[in-house]
């Protein structure tokens, strides 16, 4: 059990999230089952009022959740000082079996909540609120994911053992490791870079062709290919160390917190890319989403490509 003030703060906020989440969930179920826009009954009228509360709660949770996610990583970095062997957040994530799942769940939930908000914004623009039933249906699903995230987080923090030795990211993210992560190192770097830049080329292509489904799918693939290439290839140039592959260490001050920028760019770029495919939008909104997605993905690629190039200019060799 580890109970630093940071962990407690996260747990307190989780308790509040759970409390409000349950309220939103109950209301969502009611709305989902009984929503009938054409009805003039008292109950429909109350439901309409309650939909505002639900939307406010979900907005609140999302707005706090995003900075809290950064704070969570910050906290893991800090705990790594106390845990023996851990150099950065990676060690803490690996310290328990739940860490990896929690991390994935957190990222997934942020995408889902952001998607919900876009849907909601689109919904309230229309007079007859065409998405109301769908959006509360989505929240019912999202609620279970969200609650399992909260529970998992509680379990994770309570099962961290301070006196147990954990792995350092240097051993976790290396080709000699036996975990699932190590299998990505089997991929040839050249192939990986072709995939990464090829994927990006597809995004550009579909951007000009305005193929929204293909654009969204290529963005989805881009999330995976960019993270893998970040770990295998670009990370080594950020650290200027051929053996260091950790996707967490560059979140630390030694690398000017560049990781936060990298992940923010990737999130915004791919998220808006996904939105174009999944939300029916007005014409100008779609174009706006295309542009935002393109811009951030482009910045992401530029930023990451700069690292090896600058390294090559400085040292005259590739790693």
């Amino acid at each position: 059990m580890i109970l630093t003030p940071e962990v407690l703060a996260i747990l307190i906020l989780n308790a509040i999230f759970a409390f409000f989440g349950i309220i939103a969930f109950v209301l969502s179920v009611r709305i989902f089952l009984a929503w009938d826009l054409n009805s003039v009954s008292q109950s429909q009228y109350i439901l309409e009022k309650q939909s505002f509360l639900t939307a406010t709660i979900i907005k609140y949770i999302f707005v706090i959740k995003v900075p809290l996610f950064l704070f969570f990583i910050f906290t893991l970095d800090k705990i790594s000082n106390v845990l023996t062997g851990a150099m950065c957040a990676a060690g803490v994530v690996d310290a328990t079996v739940y860490g990896t799942y929690l991390f994935m769940l957190k990222i997934l939930n942020i995408y889902i909540f952001a998607y919900w908000l876009v849907l909601h914004n689109e919904d309230i623009k229309h007079e007859n609120q065409p998405y109301t039933k769908i959006k509360f249906g989505i929240f019912i699903v999202a609620f279970f994911l969200f609650i399992s995230e909260l529970i998992l987080e509680g379990i994770m923090f309570s099962s961290i053992d301070i006196d147990k030795m954990v792995s350092c990211c240097g051993t976790l993210y290396s080709s000699s490791a036996t975990s699932a992560i190590s299998s990505i190192f089997a991929i040839d770097t050249d192939v990986l870079l072709y995939v990464f830049y090829g994927n990006f080329a597809f995004i550009i292509l579909f951007y000009f062709l305005k193929q929204k489904y293909l654009f969204a799918i290529s963005n989805l693939v881009f999330i995976i290919s960019s993270i893998v290439s970040l770990i295998v290839f670009f990370g080594t140039y950020i650290y200027e160390l051929p053996t260091h592959h950790c996707p967490f260490c560059f979140l630390q001050s030694d690398y000017y917190y560049v990781g936060y920028l990298i992940y923010a760019l990737l999130f915004i770029g791919t998220f808006y890319g996904l939105v174009t495919g999944f939300v029916k939008n007005s014409k100008e909104n779609i174009i706006k989403n295309y542009k935002i997605s393109m811009l951030f993905n482009f910045l992401y690629v530029i930023l990451l490509s700069l690292y090896p190039i600058v390294f090559y200019i400085k040292n005259g060799v590739w790693l």
Partner: peptide
């Protein structure tokens, strides 16, 4: 517990 921990020193 920590002194005999090779890893910690390495880190």
């Amino acid at each position: 517990l920590h002194s005999t921990n090779l890893h910690a020193i390495k880190k």
